[in-house]
Design a protein around this nucleic acid. Structure first.
Lengths: 275, 275
DNA sequence: CAAAATACGTAACATACGATACAGCGCTCC
DNA sequence: GGAGCGCTGTATCGTATGTTACGTATTTTG
């Protein structure tokens, strides 16, 4: 059952030639506004020629372009009347792989933030923004990209941000640079890595403040951590989801940025200048 | 402060002559759809002549009818971007001041998945699971961690998965290994990196199938991409959010895993054995 | 009540828009 | 490697659309 043009496109995009597919993607990207404009505007937006646009709408089953536009308008009108509508992506029943995953992820995030107070986040942000020490970030097998992501952003707004990459021996040697003014951000979810635990313990012994991102079963590193952020990870998949932790990380990045606004803005401008 | 055309009309409808007032009322009655149609349709719907419609829009301050329509469209687009979800979603229960960051992120994900059909994801998953070629992943300055995250997972369930890291010259040389059976997954959001665009173009010329993760402004790489995934990135922060793309990536990882279940399970067991 | 001013519609006009014919190109399949 | 097919863009065409001029109707004002 196909009720919306968006579904129609999704259904047939596979059988379309390259040019028309670009038209389809462009339309979906800013659905449905582009389709309400003229053929010329649509075509330049998609980077194809006008006839390709017309062939595209013809392939969707419309006799001409105005008919296509009317159809889009009707859809929009219906949508505006009952705002709760879900016509774009019907709640894929049964075998649908998307919705359960998305729903679970959204739930995870809500749950994660429910157990996370503003004060906690503010404290951690303040710690990360306090520039008397250095910031180190590291993660496990699947979570190291989160550490990198956070490091990439923090490094823009402040100096002395280091992502610990490569071999274990590499970053173990960096311990010598770490002291009690420094912060170590660790991402560790099941199955917890021994190497990370050992590393965290040694860092802790040196007085390093540890901020731990982990799952609801708590990495053993929690023992040594000054701040623990617990993210829900359960999703209907063979893998655990790090999405909730990712969002917390982004939130923290935003908070730290705000705190360093004065300094940060200058740094960012300087960096822009350097590029 | 007048921000919408509807307000503008309400403001001036008192000073309008009879015919134009009828036009105004007709427009308000089925706002804004009638205004997107032709002058002729508008005029018959209002029971007046075309020139009256034109005088009406002129009185509102527009130079001509198309300009008026564009304005209506912009308004609609803005309305669609921040969906009525605000009204659907109870404003964060529990009284806790949940960060607007989280709300925006959740909205972004819902919006992102609204524009993403099951079929589209299934197609991409099938392509990634098709093990006749290799899979390469790469990302931009802030999105490369997403590429790494995806690569880390895919590499567990199938061979020939490569994350392209390091210097531009490094991965440019890998082009020689790429052919038309191979897939290149690229993450690229504003501000789009020239180096990535060039790389994508060369890969495309070699017949490599490109899967692009980008934002709603569409990286120029969309030109060369076989599949384009559009994620919303707007959040109340100095940075754009990649969280929606992250969730899509996780969803894809899950889908590919399911498709490779037979092979994948064996591989995973073997790997466990090796650890 | 008369006269002027304003409002409105009819009809002619020009433009910009969608549609089409055709040629070049790349791709696939013998 | 060659022949055929399908896709795409350029250029052209017809037309629907917005626009304007002008005459008639209606209201307003002295």
């Amino acid at each position: 059952m196909i009720s919306s043009i968006a579904e129609l496109i999704a259904d047939r995009i596979g059988t379309m030639p390259a040019g028309e597919r670009r038209a389809a993607q462009t339309l979906i990207a800013s659905y449905p506004m582009i389709g309400l404009k003229t053929v010329a505007e649509f075509s330049t937006a998609a980077g194809v020629s006008s006839p390709t646009i017309l062939r595209f709408v013809a392939r969707l089953g419309f006799q001409n372009y105005p008919e296509f536009q009317s159809s889009l308008q009707d859809e929009l009108a219906a949508q505006l009347q009952s705002p709760a509508i879900r016509t774009l992506n019907p709640p894929s029943p049964g075998g649908g792989t998307v919705s359960p995953m998305l729903e679970a992820t959204l739930d995870n995030m809500r749950e994660t933030f429910r157990h996370l107070s503003d004060k906690q986040l503010a404290d951690i942000a303040a710690r990360l923004a306090d520039r008397r020490g250095k910031t180190f970030l590291i993660g496990g097998r699947f979570t190291d990209p989160l550490a990198r992501y956070m490091a990439a952003h923090l490094a823009v707004i402040q100096p002395d941000v280091f992502h610990l990459a490569g071999q274990e021996s590499m970053w173990r040697d960096r311990l010598i640079d770490m002291g009690k003014r420094d912060v170590l951000v660790i991402f560790d979810i099941r199955r917890y890595q021994d190497s990370l635990v050992r590393f965290a313990e040694k860092a802790h012994q040196r007085g390093v403040q540890i901020v731990l991102f982990t799952d609801q079963w708590l990495s053993p590193i929690a023992r040594f951590a000054r701040h623990v952020i617990v993210g829900r990870t359960a999703v209907p998949s063979a893998w655990d989801s790090s999405a909730a932790l990712f969002v917390v990380a982004e939130t923290l990045i935003g908070a730290v940025t705000r705190q360093l606004e004065a300094d940060g803005a200058r740094r960012i401008r300087e960096m822009e200048g350097l590029r």
